[in-house]
Computed example of a mutant assay.
Amino acid sequence: MDARFLGTAELTEVPPVAVVVDVMRAFTVAAWAFAQGAERIVLAESPDEALALKARHPDWIALKDGPPTPGFDAVNSPGLLRSVDLGGRTVVQKTTAGTVGALAVKDASLVLCASFVVAEATARLLRTRGCDSVTFVVTGENGEADEDLACAQYIARRTTGDGTDAAEFLRRAGRSRAAAELTQGVRRGVHPDDVALCLELDRFPFAMAAAQEGSLMVLRPCAVPSPIDEASN
C-alpha cells in the first residue's frame, strides 16, 4: 500500500482514499458517541452551522471543543461523554482540527475517521477494501501533531502486515504536546481521564466512515469483518 501522511493544509488534490486522524480528541470522542448509542454524527463547518442545525433539530446534540458554550450540549471530551446516553440521537460535532480535516477530503471515494480506539478496525477495513493508495490526514498542529502521525503510521503498518507492536506509537502519543496540554489543564473542557481514554488501543470494534448525505457530511460506524472472516476470504 502506498501511504502518504499530509497535514490538512498540504492537501492539493482530492485523494481516492483518506483516513483522517484526530487522536486528541475529535475521533476518540466520535467513537465514544457511537458506543453510547449515537446513530450518526454530522460534521459541521463552523460553530454557527452547528448551532443552526441544532436550532432546526432541537433533539440533536451539539458538541464542540473548548469550554462549555451556550447553545452546545456537550464538549469534546471522551471522559465527559462516556456517561451520556445518546441512544438513537444525532450528534453535531465541530472541532478545531478533526472535523476540518474530514471536510477537506469530503469528495474522496472513501473517507475514514480514526484514532487509536478504532485503529485495528480501520486497518482491517482498508485491507478488506484492497486500498492500494491511502492518504492519512494528520489534523492536529497543522499536520505536526505527533499523536496523530503516530496513530496514522500505526494504522498504515497494520494495514500492510501483522505483528506491528503498538507500544512505541502509543508512547509517542503519550509524550505529545496535546497530551501534555490536556494533562496540565492548558486546554479547557477536559476530563482527567481524557488522555488515557485517547490511548486505549482498539477499544471499539468498528471503523468510522464519513460520506455526503444531502448537504451534510455524516459520520457513521462501519462494521468490519472479524479476523477469522478476513482470513477465510
Rank of each mutant, 00 (worst) to 15 (best):
F27T: 02
T28D: 04
A31M: 00
A31S: 15
W32H: 14
W32R: 13
W32S: 01
A33T: 10
A35L: 00
A35G: 15
A35K: 04
G37H: 01
G37P: 08
G37C: 11
A38N: 09
A38Y: 03
E39K: 12
R40Q: 14
R40N: 05
I41S: 01
V42M: 04
V42T: 12
L43N: 01
L43W: 08
L43P: 07
E45L: 15
D48S: 15
D48G: 15
E49F: 05
E49C: 08
A50F: 09
L51M: 13
A52S: 14
L53G: 08
A55Y: 00
R56N: 02
P58T: 12
W60L: 06
I61K: 04
A62G: 08
L63Q: 04
L63H: 01
K64V: 06
D65W: 08
D65Q: 03
G66P: 09
G66A: 09
G66H: 07
P67R: 15
P68R: 12
T69N: 03
P70M: 05
G71D: 05
F72L: 01
D73T: 10
D73G: 14
A74K: 03
A74E: 12
V75E: 09
N76R: 07
S77L: 03
S77W: 11
S77T: 06
P78A: 10
V84G: 10
D85E: 14
D85W: 12
L86C: 11
L86V: 07
L86R: 03
G87C: 06
G87L: 09
G88V: 08
G88I: 01
R89Y: 00
T90W: 00
V91C: 06
V91R: 02
V91Q: 06
V92W: 00
Q93N: 13
Q93V: 04
